[in-house]
């Protein structure tokens, strides 16, 4: 299939049609240097890393790929179009549970190689918010309310864990499952839903205006809510690629030092490149500051609990051991970067 694709590609290229718009990175691929293709869901991280200058002098070639949504990231990984993908820390729980056999340290097709989040509790990665008009004072008041969320990832876990914390079953609320967190946020912001579980950013305007407030943070529910890089098993085992990956992760870690000291530049990136409103860009810039967290036993234990929740809720069909989803090979590189 790859041969066919290449031959078709070259045919089109020969027609001169695509040649004009092919990305320069493709043309650079001629060299013998190791190439690392890293997928992200938007260009935010790409732009701040580029702007920080940490990539200067990198001994490998880095190619970014923008693929919105965890499904596209996973497709990119499985098809080997990308080496590393960006997603939430729970995505692999569902992937492993869907696989026909158990993953092992040797055969796991994908492993998490690094995880990060904002260390400041003022920037909770995910929240459950309620509209003031819904008159929800206590967790028990969630009963019977319209609750917007999207399936997959830690947004969904925030919804289930919040519901379980409130002691409610699915039948006790009106679930409004939408395609992604933006759609769920739109339903919440426009008052079509009373409760929202997901990222704070998309509903922040409602909270700032005083129409809504945060009811539960992910920390309240012991959800680690790390954003992670997931790499293909072959990439981790390949000596050259894994060296490049370790180097790359170190540079990403160092870029947050630049980030912290250059918030106005970061804001400009969110405003100009991601087309965010000034208020949203200000929040995004503050929120985006992160540090790596080690992939250790404590984390694995918390993640294992999430897998149990998903199993109890019937969203995964079998019990799995999540420890195999975490490669600890790059802990040294990420912690060194965090301690600079």
């Amino acid at each position: 299939m790859i041969i066919t694709r290449r031959s078709i590609l070259s045919a089109i290229g020969a027609a001169g049609a695509v040649g004009a718009i092919a990305s320069p990175a493709v043309l650079r691929a001629q060299t013998a240097r190791t190439k690392l293709v890293v997928g992200t869901q938007d260009i935010g991280l790409q732009e701040t890393v580029k702007a920080s200058g940490v990539l200067e002098g990198a001994p490998f070639d880095l190619q970014w790929a923008t693929l919105p949504g965890p499904a596209a990231q996973l497709s990119g990984l499985y098809s080997k179009a990308i080496d590393v993908g960006l997603m939430g820390d729970t995505s692999l729980i569902i992937e492993q549970a869907r696989a026909s056999g158990d993953w092992t340290e040797e055969n796991a097709p994908l492993q998490i190689v690094a995880g990060w989040r904002n260390p400041d509790p003022a920037f909770p990665p995910i929240i459950t918010a309620v509209r003031n008009s819904a008159k929800i004072e206590t967790l028990a008041d969630l009963r019977g309310k319209r609750w917007a969320f999207n399936f997959g990832g830690f947004n969904y876990l925030q919804y289930i864990a919040s519901r379980i914390r409130a002691g409610l079953k699915v039948e006790d609320i009106q679930p409004v499952q939408l395609v992604d967190t933006n759609a769920a946020a739109a339903a919440f912001n426009s008052g079509r839903a009373d409760v929202f579980s997901g990222g704070l950013g998309p509903v922040k305007s409602s909270i700032d205006k005083g129409d809504a407030r945060i009811l539960l943070r992910s920390d309240d529910l012991d959800i680690p809510s790390l954003t992670v890089f997931t790499a293909r098993g072959e990439v981790i085992r390949d000596e050259a690629k894994s060296a490049a990956l370790g180097d790359f992760l170190g540079r990403v870690g160092r870029h947050w030092h630049w980030y912290k000291n250059n918030i106005p530049a970061v804001e400009a990136i969110f405003r100009e490149r991601l087309k965010q409103t000034p208020e949203r860009a200000q929040y995004s810039a503050g929120n985006g500051f992160s540090r790596f967290y080690p992939l250790d036993d404590a984390l694995v234990k918390r993640e294992q609990k999430l897998a149990e929740i998903l199993f109890e809720a019937g969203d995964i069909q079998r019990r799995i051991d999540v420890s195999v989803e975490f490669s600890r090979k790059f802990n040294a590189a990420t912690s060194a970067a965090s301690n600079v």
């Binding site: 299939m1 694709r5 590609l9 695509v18 718009i21 092919a22 990305s23 493709v26 997928g39 790929a65 693929l67 596209a72 497709s75 990119g76 499985y78 098809s79 179009a81 990308i82």
Partner: peptide, 8 residues
């Protein structure tokens, strides 16, 4: 993406 990659 699986079938046709991530390029042009």
């Amino acid at each position: 993406i699986v079938w046709f990659g991530i390029d042009e």
